[in-house]
Design a binder for these strands. Structure first.
Length: 482
DNA sequence: CTAATCTTT
DNA sequence: CGGGAAAGATTAG
């Protein structure tokens, strides 16, 4: 499979992705002036001049000059990993933001700085005198078998636009809100359209298959609404239609965090609850040595109620009429992998669905922390690695179909792990969309590799005239047998 | 929780 | 002056 991938990646790498260079230059200037404003505000708030990008200088201002840590003894402020210094991380600044104006300014500055340096100026530097980019793609740099991209890292461009308020110094003008969206800078060539095909909840479907959890299987076998939307709607107590992008994303993070073994600290952070709040009761019946992450913390999502994080209780996240015990899935998944022969303790390796292997020498370590980390990596590898296998197979099959076609001219532009981005001639969009979707969904069964997933694969297709403005494309479902 | 890349100090 | 580690941002599940 990886040998066949070489041709796919070579074709993708030689494709020129057009960029609106002028728009990129304009946003660079815009963000530059905004950052200068924020820098001045920061200096004024601090009462001195300092390098806003330097965390060590910020630490001096925040804790030695303003002594903000002395004013929040009830809160626990994060420390740096190595030395036991006060951290200037996002979590720390969020704790401090009500005590002083400076933390908020720094948070906004960092957000804009990241966008400007990496996604605006960074992309510009990848273009030199051209008006297009071509990433370099790697097949061997990710341990799970995913592919990665460099210069630019196409897989890490912000998905959400950034809103910034532009201060107007012209009399009679109101403040102007401008949205900056790096993805919108990428445009197809004249007469062509971007088409994206996304494997829906692919890792969760693989988790259902690999764990054989009946409730999780039922969610995917029955034609259902989006799982994360359902979870988010019950969590927020609103209808599915009212769930925002952020709500769904939050629910998604909670689910993946729990199944991949997040501990008390991490989970409380994601839930937006302090670790102390998550540390209320300890159930005497459980032994933390056996299942540290799960027995220390678990979360309950009940319809219309807010999230409770508490120690020792079992965690269930209700999903409409389905009640999925994510905690239980997490707890027994390592045993599932051992039973299925996907994880070998004796030989210290783990296998993906298509036989990709990762060695895990620490799976038998005497050090509890090291051993548990290897177990989390085992769980994550089987799911993430299997998803990577599926996506690579899809890329190869679609590549071969296009190559052997007389009419199709679609080109692969990028791969975003579970999503394929193509550039298609306007007249071929619908035909190609149907082909991509049926090819991807057919990977539920791959006879010669012995792959037979217990749940169907679902693919969502969208198209647009820029990468920043893609809209769902409704195509008739594939009908293999009539 | 897992897996990456990129920029700055 | 430059290599490397650390921190903190982005992405994907």
């Amino acid at each position: 499979m990886e040998l066949k991938m070489i041709f796919v990646l070579a074709a993708m790498e030689s494709h020129r992705i057009h960029v609106d260079k002028e728009a990129l230059r304009r946003t660079s200037d815009l963000l530059g002036t905004k950052m200068k404003q924020l820098e001045q505000e920061a200096h004024r708030a601090a009462g001195q001049i300092f390098l806003v990008t330097s965390n060590s200088q910020l630490r001096t201002v925040l804790f030695e000059k303003l002594c903000l840590h002395e004013r929040c003894e009830n809160k626990k402020l994060p420390k740096t990993i190595n030395k036991q210094q006060q951290s200037t991380s996002e979590a720390a600044l969020l704790q401090l933001q009500d005590l002083h104006p400076l933390p908020k300014i720094i948070l906004e500055y960092r957000q804009i700085h990241k966008i400007k340096s990496t996604f605006v100026d960074g992309i510009l530097s990848c273009m030199m005198s051209k008006n297009y980019v071509s990433s370099t793609w790697y097949q061997t740099s990710v341990v799970t078998g995913r592919i990665s991209a460099k210069h630019p890292n196409f897989q890490a461009l912000p998905r959400q636009p950034l809103q910034i308020t532009k201060k107007q110094y012209i009399q009679g003008k109101e403040e102007e809100v401008v949205t900056v969206h790096p993805r919108a800078m990428f445009i197809p060539q004249e007469g062509w359209t971007f088409l994206a095909a996304d494997f829906c909840q692919v890792e969760l479907r693989l988790l259902a298959h690999l764990s054989s959890d009946p409730e999780l299987l039922r969610i995917f076998i029955n034609p259902q609404a989006d799982v994360f939307t359902m979870l988010a709607s019950q969590w927020k107590g609103v209808s599915a239609g009212e769930v925002t992008f952020e709500d769904r994303e939050h629910a998604k993070r909670i689910v993946y965090s729990v199944v991949y073994g997040a501990g008390r600290e991490r989970l409380s952070g994601i839930l937006g609850v302090s670790a102390e709040q998550a540390d209320l009761q300890r159930s005497p019946g459980l032994h933390p040595e056996d299942h540290p992450a799960v027995s220390q913390t678990s979360c309950t999502l009940t319809p219309g109620a807010e999230i409770n994080a508490c120690l020792g209780s079992t965690s269930t996240l209700h999903c409409s009429e389905f009640i999925v015990d994510w905690y239980l899935i997490q707890r027994y998944f390592v045993q599932n992998l051992l039973d299925a022969g996907r994880l070998s303790r004796d030989d210290g390796y783990v296998l993906s669905i298509m036989g990709r292997r990762r060695t895990l020498p620490n799976i038998n370590s005497n050090d509890w922390g090291i051993r548990m980390q290897a177990e989390r990596q085992a769980v994550n590898f089987v799911v993430q690695g299997s998803a990577a296998d599926l996506c690579k197979m899809a890329m190869i099959r679609i590549f071969n179909l296009v190559s052997s076609s007389n009419s199709l001219s679609a080109r692969l532009v990028a791969q975003l792990h579970d999503e394929l981005l193509y550039e298609v001639e306007d007249s071929q969009v619908e035909q190609f969309a149907a082909l991509v979707r049926s090819t991807m969904e057919s990977l539920q069964h791959i006879d010669h590799l012995g792959v037979h997933l217990k749940v169907p694969l679902k693919v969502a297709v969208s198209s647009g005239k820029s990468w920043g403005s893609m809209s769902e494309l409704n195509i008739p479902p594939a009908s293999p047998s009539l």
